[in-house]
Structures are given as structure tokens and as C-alpha cells.
Write a protein that binds this DNA or RNA. Structure first.
Length: 220
DNA sequence: AAACGGATAGTC
DNA sequence: ACTATCCGTTTA
């Protein structure tokens, strides 16, 4: 039976939203809002984006997850409590934004791969979805490693997630989505690279993926 | 000290 | 389809 969690308008998604298996968080995040608040007053302040693509990383046993190499200074956030931002540098020049899922005591991550910007300053309209991918997203929204460990559930956080048009529902999301292999994880070996742990809103133009659940290239 | 990893853009 | 870019992370 589905449990509806109530939340207060204008509040970030609560801890219990993130305190679930990475798969549940990844799928339930689709269609919800990523918010850059005005707290740090940057040019990206006030941007609201709809999440259209995510990936789940399951923890120490997932060879595609950074946590599989054990705890290091870079990955420490993943070993902490759910509801925090795990931001790392990839390819030497891009940042990737993740949320730390639950349950408490486990490791893992949910990568935000693509968003669609609904509201932004007029001068920046369209900037966040020109080009695709997790690196572009963070560059457009000015998310960097300085946001690593940020508490996403804190009302004063400069990065927050919001419910969007749907209520928070457990245990299953009610948003239709598609899934397929994650991107760029070939070095994890065929077993883990091939698992359908990438999720996206079907047909959305902002989705960065290049493969469907059969592993074939497609335009989404 | 040095190898490694990998998203994006640009060129072919 | 292939290559340049770029540098923190990790291992030796």
C-alpha cells in the first residue's frame, strides 16, 4: 500500500525522501525539481529545473560506484547520511552532482544526468540545456565541488530538491519512466556496465543518453 | 612520481 | 567515428 508523505510548500524534499535505496530515489527524482536558491546570490540563483534523467549507483558491491574502492577523501560523502550532495570532478574539467541515498549505514549515489530549466533569468534562458550531460548541467547551474557534503534537506542550502507537481509517494514512484544501461561505466565490467540503472522521462529532448534498454543507440 | 579516468566539443 | 582537452585521484 502506497504511503503518501506530506511536505510543506516551499520546503526542500525531506530526509525520508532520500533515505531509500538508490533505485527508488533515482526513479522518484524524475520529474521533480532541482532548485538553486538565492542564498549565495550568484547569477544562477533562483533557477528551477525539472530532472529528466538520473542514474543509480548501488554501493560498495557496485563496480561502477566510486565507493567500491573503499572510502577515500573524495568519496567520503557517500559513506555519510542520506540527503547530502556528493559532487566530484570528472574528466579533469567537469563536475557531477549526486544525491546520497539510503538506507543509513550503506553507501551509494544517485547521479543527476539531465535537467530541463523551467524558470531562469531572462538572459540565461536556455543556457542550462544547451548541450547535454551531467557536466553541462553542473556548469550551467554553477555546481562545483564546493557543494560537496551540502545538506540538501536544509532550508538554507543553496542546492535543494522540491516535490514538483507530484506528491511524495512511497514506496514506488508514479511517474512513467524508461530505463537502460548507465553511461561511461564500461570499465566496471560487462555485468555492472549493463545493468539497467539509468532512468529517464520517455522522449524528453534534454535526455543525454544514447542507448535504450536494449543497448542500442537511439535519439530518445 | 606517474598513470589513470572520462564528459564534451570539434573535426573528419 | 575519432581525437584533444584537462587535472584531481589513486596507486606505486
Amino acid at each position: 500500500m502506497k504511503q503518501i508523505l506530506h511536505y510543506k510548500e516551499g520546503r526542500p524534499l525531506p530526509r525520508i525522501f532520500f533515505d531509500r535505496d538508490a533505485r527508488d530515489v533515482a526513479t522518484d527524482l524524475l520529474g521533480r525539481h532541482l532548485v538553486r536558491t538565492s542564498a549565495d546570490g550568484g547569477q544562477h540563483a533562483g533557477a528551477v529545473a525539472t530532472i529528466v534523467e538520473t542514474e543509480a549507483y548501488l554501493g560498495s558491491h557496485d563496480f561502477a560506484c566510486h565507493a567500491c574502492r573503499g572510502r577515500t577523501p573524495r568519496t567520503a560523502t557517500m559513506f555519510g547520511p542520506p540527503g547530502h550532495a556528493y559532487v566530484y570532478l570528472v574528466s579533469g574539467m567537469y563536475h557531477c552532482l549526486n544525491t546520497v541515498p539510503g538506507p543509513y549505514g550503506t553507501t551509494g549515489a544517485v547521479l543527476i544526468r539531465a535537467v530541463y530549466v523551467d524558470h531562469d533569468q531572462p538572459s540565461r534562458q536556455g543556457a542550462a540545456y544547451r548541450g547535454t550531460g551531467p557536466g553541462r548541467l553542473t556548469r550551467s547551474l554553477d555546481v562545483t565541488r564546493r557543494h560537496d557534503t551540502a545538506d540538501l534537506c536544509d532550508m538554507s542550502s543553496t542546492i535543494q530538491f522540491a516535490s514538483g507537481p507530484r506528491p511524495i509517494a512511497r514506496p514506488n514512484p508514479d511517474q512513467p519512466f524508461r530505463c537502460g544501461p548507465r553511461i561511461g561505466d564500461d570499465s566496471a565490467g560487462p555485468e555492472w556496465a549493463g545493468k539497467p540503472l539509468r532512468f529517464w522521462l520517455d522522449g524528453h529532448f534534454a535526455v543525454s543518453g544514447t542507448r535504450n534498454e536494449a543497448g542500442e543507440r537511439c535519439a530518445n
